[in-house]
Design a protein around this nucleic acid. Structure first.
Lengths: 234, 234
DNA sequence: AATATTCTGTAGTAGCTGTTACAATATTAA
DNA sequence: TTAATATTGTAACAGCTACTACAGAATATT
């Protein structure tokens, strides 16, 4: 099944094979439903740096990332920035649409050229009512997200920055990594400032910790990409 | 409808009105389903300090907390303990049963005498397939949990211990607090060590920070219970 | 190619937190 | 009640991190 996304995206975004037509979540829908859903879904094409939504916006829509990468971050009262997660092709963004809050608690900003499909709450609710198995799949997805966030909480609780940074890198590598002969490679560049936002530490402290991790052989830096040689991918 | 729990629990546990028979999640089930489900549900009565499950145990069961309070915590490799969450009557525990992991990532230990109802994965899946609206409700619950964990990540990212502690206390108060004339009262005692596990800080540092928060008028201590006078409950 | 901008590396200092030790108080058990 | 245990409070010091400042390297822009 050819997806509308491909026509819209053009050739500058490498699309994931994950789409409404073939996403595992929707695999038991009949073709009429799929057609209806994929026509309703609001496709958006975003450039690097563009935001999908900002913290505080009313949360009425949930997005499937078709291609690219999206950073979920938040600015705290004291002005410090915190990155909560980085989502990639095949992931959902805005899953808290279902919660009571009513607004997005974070901002979603594209790290690369990105393509998304958006769905409204009512669209999703209808879908789940009609196809309970889709509900089960979403439950599984949300459950995985909870596990991941639990890991994140654990990482941040580690006092020592070097250890904390390594845990953060491991988490990122597990989500965005590819196995190579040298180890797990994180598929996109991260500046020390980015890592600071992910780790909750000062940029300069990250530089120090990176130096120590390199020296300890726990990370390798190869043309802007990070490799974790001692990590096994799940 | 009289719940089986009441007969089992006896009089030493104050039960929440939330049960299979009247839990909002199950409100659209017909009486035959409710009967079947409540008979299958495995009730457990636990004393203070007893564990519902330990980190690493196979995750095949999810629990509804009928009465009492359960601490979800984890021991890190370096031996430090971290408390991820405290659940109360009406909450679910073990929701990661749905995820791929296969085992509980945390231990669940009772802080008080506690009563739970357990459900197996297959039981829940059947239920969702038969009653899609139940699936939607669970999606909402999980979604709320994600929001809460996001807050938790945010709290832990704050470097300053006094501020971090106050955020942790606010989170706890929002979950377990009751509005009083003086402010929001946390309904159960927390030692400085407990707060250390919640905050990811040393016990002595908690004592220091508590002193500062008291002095600043941000918290009041009244016979073992904490009051946050400046907090508004959601 | 030249310039501007972003990113990385290094250093020094101030401030905060962890750690250890011990006293004082409160709670629980005998 | 008394003894045992758990909790809180205080102090001193070591160690780590934040903060600031600046230089060099790498990228991006013109």
């Amino acid at each position: 099944m050819t997806c509308l996304c491909q026509q819209i995206a053009g050739k500058d975004i490498e699309l994931s094979p994950t789409c409404i037509g073939n996403l595992w979540i929707f695999k038991d829908l009949d073709s009429a439903d799929i057609k209806a859903l994929s026509q309703d879904a609001l496709r958006k094409k975003l450039v690097k740096g563009q935001s999908l939504f900002l913290q505080g916006d009313p949360a009425n829509e949930m997005f499937l990332v078709k291609g690219g990468r999206i950073k979920l971050s938040k600015v705290l009262e004291d002005g410090t920035e915190l990155t909560l997660d980085i989502r990639k092709a095949g992931d959902f963004v805005g899953e808290n649409m279902f919660s009571e809050e009513g607004q997005y608690p974070v901002s979603a900003v594209c790290l690369e050229a990105t393509m998304t499909c958006g769905f409204s709450r009512s669209q999703f609710e209808e879908l789940v009512m009609k196809h309970p198995r889709v509900g089960l799949q979403i439950i599984k997805t949300l459950s995985d997200r909870i596990s991941q966030l639990t890991n994140r909480v654990e990482s941040l609780a580690v006092a020592n920055i070097e250890e904390r940074l390594y845990r953060v890198l491991s988490n990122v590598a597990k989500e965005h990594g590819a196995q190579s002969s040298q180890g797990v490679v994180i598929q996109f560049p991260l500046t020390h400032e980015d890592l600071g936002f992910l780790t909750g530490a000062h940029r300069v402290s990250i530089t120090r910790a990176m130096k120590a991790l390199k020296k300890a052989g726990k990370i390798i830096l190869e043309n802007k990409l990070l490799i974790l040689p001692t990590l096994k991918i799940a």
